[in-house]
């Protein structure tokens, strides 16, 4: 059980970072669907920079910047040019997926043994790290894990307890009303999308760092789409997302370990679990999960239609 938790926690970090990034822009009404590609690009860029510079931290930071740049394109095309959010998101998903593989092939080429970067060192919090069962999983971790925990708390505090957070949320609920109160809708949407997409990229960049240290094409394997589902299921709230990410991470690890578990059912059916479970939960999610009223809708202040 303890070993299982040690595997779950890094996946929790991936889901949490990417999903917090998704809900940040979602709360201002920008429905980001670039995750699957941006996470791949983050993983590719983060890996390559770490490999060349010898520093994981620089890799993660550059991955954030590249993700933020994609976010800026998404924000500009949807707020300033008012192009359909989903269609622009899909186009950026294709472009980033292509760019991820292209960059890796350009820098590394085709090799017999894939190059590796160092995995992240783990820090132990004194005393707490000795706790049975959860000690190893929660208190002997790398700095990205602690960052994800703090980020989640900051997101909660920012959205629920600051006036800027209230402005952000009002833009997602009713941009026209927010605009009439002097809140800059374009500004709020741009910032949330830039930072949010950067976080998504960091989530992707973190995937190789805890264990393998290698990048492979297709390593995101649908997690980007699961992140969107997680944002929906978490009702676009930071703390619900933290809990949901634990569920998604557990399913993910179960799927990864299916082949060695030997439960008597073909392992493929256990590997389906993350996806099937998500579909089932979504059926019931309607009862609790609500979403920002203007999620996915562009705002045009000159339009006469009332949102």
């Amino acid at each position: 059980m303890s070993e299982f938790l040690v595997l779950v926690v890094p996946m929790w970090v991936v889901f949490t970072l990417a999903a917090q990034g998704t809900i940040l822009s979602g709360r201002t009404g920008v429905f980001n669907v670039t995750q699957e590609g941006v996470m791949a690009l983050g993983a590719s860029v983060g890996f390559l920079v770490s490999y060349k510079m010898g520093s994981n931290l620089v890799g993660l930071l550059i991955a954030f910047l590249v993700g933020a740049l994609v976010g800026l394109v998404l924000a500009y095309m949807t707020t300033q040019l008012r192009l359909d959010q989903f269609v622009v998101g899909l186009a950026l998903f294709f472009a980033t997926t292509g760019a991820a593989g292209l960059l890796y092939r350009q820098v590394i080429g085709v090799t017999m043994t894939p190059p590796r970067v160092d995995t992240l060192p783990k820090f132990e919090i004194p005393l707490l790290g000795d706790l049975p069962l959860i000690g190893d999983a929660l208190f002997v971790q790398d700095y990205v894990f602690y960052f994800a925990v703090i980020l989640s708390l900051v997101m909660f505090w920012f959205l629920q307890h600051t006036s800027a957070g209230l402005d952000f949320r009002s833009v997602g609920e009713n941009p026209k009303a927010a605009d009439s109160l002097g809140i800059n809708v374009t500004w709020a949407r741009t910032w949330s999308t830039v930072v949010g997409t950067g976080l998504v990229a960091v989530g992707g960049a973190y995937i190789p760092l805890p264990f393998t240290g290698i990048y492979t094409d297709g390593m995101i394997a649908g997690r980007g789409w699961l992140v969107i589902a997680l944002a929906f299921l978490g009702g676009w709230r930071p703390l619900y997302v933290v809990a949901g990410a634990a569920f998604f991470a557990a399913m993910d690890v179960l799927g990864q370990k299916a082949q060695v578990l030997g439960l008597g059912i073909p392992h493929q059916f256990i590997e389906m679990l993350p996806f099937v479970a998500t579909l089932l939960v979504m059926v019931f999610a309607l009862r609790w999960a609500r979403q920002p009223a203007h999620l996915g809708m562009n705002y045009d202040r000159e339009s006469r239609l009332v949102g």
Partner: peptide
């Protein structure tokens, strides 16, 4: 259930 998500998730299944 949002059809974007359900169709994508069914791919992986």
């Amino acid at each position: 259930v949002n059809e974007i998500l359900s169709t994508v998730l069914l791919n992986f299944v």
